[in-house]
């Protein structure tokens, strides 16, 4: 009895704690400022997309949206390609090289990427890769390779040996086996890893903050930080910006919930 009541109360409290701020943001993006301050949870008096159009024209939010999209999609596709190749090779290597490679990548899991910000920045200044979307893509790949390789190697090691060996007997080389056997079998694992990478790259703040200063190269999280100063007193605009930045994630979450949750938890467990 006591258990059931406290269970219900605690679950309700946390659900409210999640739903109330989310509703304030969603409703707020259709409201005017004074409505947010006086009654944040009420429905807007007039549903209007004025904030969105203002943000597009005045805040030029489509440019960072496009930049984020380019950086994220290239980072995810390239990381998945490089990581799956590398993980497949490692999982097939019984030599010392395989173990050493795996340990080197495991080292990257132990050292948080954040401690690398200064040397990476100085290196990128030397290579003229600051203020460049290509530079951001490179950083993203380097930072997310260890975790991706870790997840995918564990996956490839669990693939049935017979299939790989059979394809070897049939005369298929390493590449052929990778493309025709390993990749098709690993679709779910790749999907989950891909979503995990997508969330990391889409939401990343630290590296863009350090590497990008030019307005036309900024990504969404950076622009949100700028908006905080620009619209310091206008939460309707800030909430609208948050909506724009979150829409791709929310859509992915709704339509691919299973892989989404699998990806984000695999990343945490393995990391």
């Amino acid at each position: 009895m006591f258990y059931n009541i406290s269970r219900r109360v605690l679950l309700a409290i946390f659900a409210i704690l999640v739903l109330v701020p989310s509703s304030i943001v969603v409703l707020g993006s259709f409201k005017q400022d004074f409505e947010i301050y006086t009654n944040p949870l009420a429905l807007p008096k007039h549903w209007s997309f004025a904030n969105f159009t203002r943000l597009i024209h005045e805040g030029n939010v489509l440019t960072p949206f496009k930049n984020s999209f380019i950086v994220t999609s290239f980072s995810v596709v390239l990381t998945l390609t490089l990581a799956s190749m590398c993980a497949f090779a490692i999982s097939r290597m019984i030599t010392v090289t395989g173990r050493v490679l795996f340990l080197l990548f495991a080292l990257g899991l132990a050292i948080p990427g954040q401690v690398n910000i200064i040397p990476v920045y100085l290196l990128f200044v030397k290579l003229h890769l600051t203020n460049s979307l290509f530079g951001l893509i490179l950083v993203n790949i380097a930072v997310t390779l260890p975790i991706s390789i870790f997840i995918l190697t564990t996956f490839f090691k669990d693939l049935p040996r017979e299939m790989i060996e059979a394809s070897g007997i049939d005369g298929a080389g390493m590449w052929r086996t990778y493309r025709s056997i390993a990749l098709p079998l690993s679709k779910p694992a790749m999907g989950a890893t891909g979503i995990f990478l997508f969330v990391i790259c889409w939401n990343d703040l630290l590296y863009p903050l350090m590497l990008i200063t030019q307005v036309d190269k900024k990504t969404l999280p950076l622009t949100l930080i700028d908006f905080r100063g620009e619209y310091a007193t206008s939460y309707s605009m800030l909430f609208t910006a948050i909506m724009v930045a979150s829409i791709p994630m929310v859509l992915m979450y709704i339509f691919m919930q299973k892989s989404f949750v699998a990806g984000l938890t695999a990343g945490a467990v393995k990391g």
């Binding site: 490089l82 990581a83 590398c86 490679l101 080197l104 290196l123 790949i141 380097a142």
Partner: peptide, 11 residues
């Protein structure tokens, strides 16, 4: 490719 990139931009 992965090892080179990782070595150069991480290690």
């Amino acid at each position: 490719p992965a090892a080179l990139l990782y070595g150069f931009l991480y290690l």
